[in-house]
């Protein structure tokens, strides 16, 4: 049987769908006690990886284990791992309560557990309505309730914020963090870092089926160079003075400010003082994770930039 460690281990996982390599030699581990974000653009192989972990898709090579065991060796999987997956269906004519009772029976938990989880996700008042009439957000809550039926040690969620309203997302965030704090494992996928940034402690970033970054979110933040944004009285004078000091990474922003990378704001202010340039505003830019995420994952399915509309209009316009 499984070791009860709550550890998810993905090792050299590869999946080939005909000529398409969906996942290529992917490796990472997820530990209990924290929420781990599984990030990558659409089509990066997130869903396929999660489905391999859950025994729904057979890997071409490599292994994916929960508690040291592949899914089909878990014995009573519903009590070990709960999952919310995209494209997880419901019978439209079945009520939410009956849906949960079906799977409560399959997992072997009492019906009272179904009533409890339906209250927990805030669907208590809709329990006896048919799922066919549910909104996307309600279905997502019901899927989460289903995942929680067996009180599992490991929770795997694929794009759980889809269809949830801001209130629902905030609730989910708190819920997942407290779930992880109970010493359980939470793995949550998303194609938007910003969406899960406040929820996750660890991140696994994949692109084109490969791991691009794997570690604490904090470490990812620190790897990003800081920028100082400054609004001087004379842009050119300050830029020249900075270059004279060997600072090369200077950029003019559209709003008229200078963005200076690789320096402290103190140095910029001192240089400005020496050059006789007034400073109207200065700030150190907060780490822009989204930009870093973009750099890590860009390249897949890259489209062309749209043709400059302004220019075309001028050419064809009145002269």
């Amino acid at each position: 049987m499984h070791d009860g460690s709550g550890l998810i281990a993905v090792q050299n996982l590869t999946k080939q769908f005909g000529p398409v390599t969906a996942v290529q030699n992917l490796s990472f581990t997820v530990s209990p006690g924290s929420v781990t974000g599984f990030l990558g653009p659409n089509g990066a192989g997130k869903t396929t990886t999660l489905r391999m972990l859950l025994g729904l898709v057979k890997p071409t090579s490599g292994t994916a284990t929960i508690n040291g065991r592949p899914f089909h060796q878990l014995g009573q999987p519903g009590r070990v791992v709960g999952a919310v997956l995209e494209a997880q269906g419901f019978h439209p004519a079945r009520t939410a309560r009956n849906h949960l009772r079906v799977y409560a029976s399959a997992i072997g938990v009492p019906d009272a557990q179904a009533d409890q989880v339906i209250g927990l996700v805030g669907l208590g008042s809709a329990a006896d309505r048919k799922v066919g009439g549910f909104s996307l957000g309600m279905k997502q809550r019901l899927a989460l309730a289903t995942a929680l039926l067996g009180d599992p040690q490991v929770l795997v969620l694929d794009e759980p914020a889809n269809g949830l309203d801001p209130e629902g997302i905030a609730w989910l965030r708190t819920f997942l963090q407290s779930y992880a704090r109970m010493g359980r494992t939470v793995l949550i996928s998303s194609h938007l870092l910003a969406e899960v940034e406040q929820t996750v402690d660890q991140v696994v970033i994949i692109s084109r089926g490969q791991t691009m970054f794997y570690g604490p979110l904090q470490q990812l933040r620190q790897s990003q160079q800081k920028r100082v944004l400054v609004q001087p009285s004379d842009l050119n004078a300050l830029a020249t003075a900075l270059r004279a000091e060997g600072v090369q990474a200077i950029e003019q922003l559209p709003d008229g400010r200078l963005a200076v990378s690789g320096v402290e704001s103190k140095q910029v202010a001192d240089t400005a003082l020496k050059a006789g340039v007034s400073i109207y505003g200065i700030q150190e830019e907060q780490v822009d994770l989204e930009r870093l995420f973009f750099q890590l994952t860009s390249g897949q399915y890259a489209g062309y930039a749209p043709a400059p509309y302004q220019q075309q209009q001028q050419q064809g316009g009145w002269h």
Binding site: F90, Y103, A106, G150
Partner: peptide
């Protein structure tokens, strides 16, 4: 067709 098979397989030993 309704994709309920996913949940069925997730809650069964095999």
């Amino acid at each position: 067709s309704r994709r309920t098979i996913t949940t069925t397989f997730l809650t069964a030993p095999s």
